[in-house]
Simulated assay, not measured.
Amino acid sequence: MQGSNHAETNEELYNRAKKLFVERGYEEVTMKELAKEVGWSEKQLVRRFGSKGDFVIELMMEGFSLEEEENDPDVRSLNTNKAVADIVYDYIMKRLNRYLIFGKKLFKEMMTWSLSLAKKNPEMMNKFVQMDFMFVDDLITFLDGLKENGVLETEFDSVQAGEIVYSVLAFEFLVYIYQSDHTKDQLHEGIQKKLHFIFT
């Protein structure tokens, strides 16, 4: 597989690389194949990003911003006959599932990589942390939208709920990453159960 021409922007790199990872899986794709897909030489790709993990993480951060802008939900179009926990679950998983394609190995690399990132590249570390803040802010905005549309009570504290939901996701991801036999289905189930506890 080869890109038809040289990818000039991070958005182009992200879209082409994501396509390859979806088709093959993170662990199966080599830097040589990535370079070929985006129309770069392997040497250029290594010089620009370093490792495959660094490449994916940086482009994940780029893609997060791009896709959050493209997928801003219209609360008015939601099926409000569903339980609130299920509405929130659908909102969250629509965003998280696009990253689960990379598999456990990448997320383990990310955990190790982030420990040294503050010294190695503080600017990227700041961008990395901002992804979490952006996610929480977007979730709070989503919950406020549910309040405005009568799905949640007006006195519902969207900020506290958003931060608690983030804590749930962090815990469930740690279990998923570090327990080798923990499946994506179990990850989904764990998130869903805790959301029902929070919103019931």
Rank of each mutant, 00 (worst) to 15 (best):
I87N: 00
E62S: 14
R16L: 08
A170M: 13
A161K: 02
M124R: 09
F173K: 06
E69A: 15
K119P: 02
E163D: 12
Y91S: 03
T9N: 09
I140L: 07
S65K: 08
V22G: 02
H196W: 08
Y89M: 00
F102K: 02
N71S: 10
F171G: 11
S114T: 09
N126K: 15
Y89R: 02
T112P: 00
K193D: 03
S41I: 15
Y14L: 10
M93L: 05
V75H: 04
Y99E: 04
G162A: 12
F107P: 01
H182P: 00
I177F: 02
V22C: 06
N81A: 14
H196Y: 09
K94E: 01
R24Q: 03
N5Q: 10
K52C: 08
E153T: 14
I57G: 04
L174K: 12
Y26V: 07
N97G: 07
N15Q: 13
D90Q: 01
D181S: 08
D137P: 02
V56E: 01
D74A: 11
A170I: 13
M131W: 12
T200G: 05
K184P: 03
I191S: 05
R48Q: 10
I92N: 00
F197K: 12
A35D: 04
A118H: 13
E37D: 11
S4T: 13
I191V: 03
N71G: 09
E8W: 07
L20A: 06
L146R: 00
K52N: 07
M111L: 12
I57R: 02
K36C: 11
I198D: 03
S51Q: 13
L66I: 12
L106R: 01
L45I: 12
V46Y: 05
M60E: 03
E109I: 05
R95K: 10
N15V: 15
S41E: 11
K94C: 04
P73A: 11
E123P: 08
M93F: 02
L174E: 13
Y176A: 01
G145Q: 07
E148N: 12
M61N: 14
K147W: 11
F197R: 06
E28M: 04
V56M: 01
R76K: 15
L13W: 02
L143G: 06
V56A: 07
I191H: 02
N121V: 11
T200D: 08
E67G: 09
V165E: 01
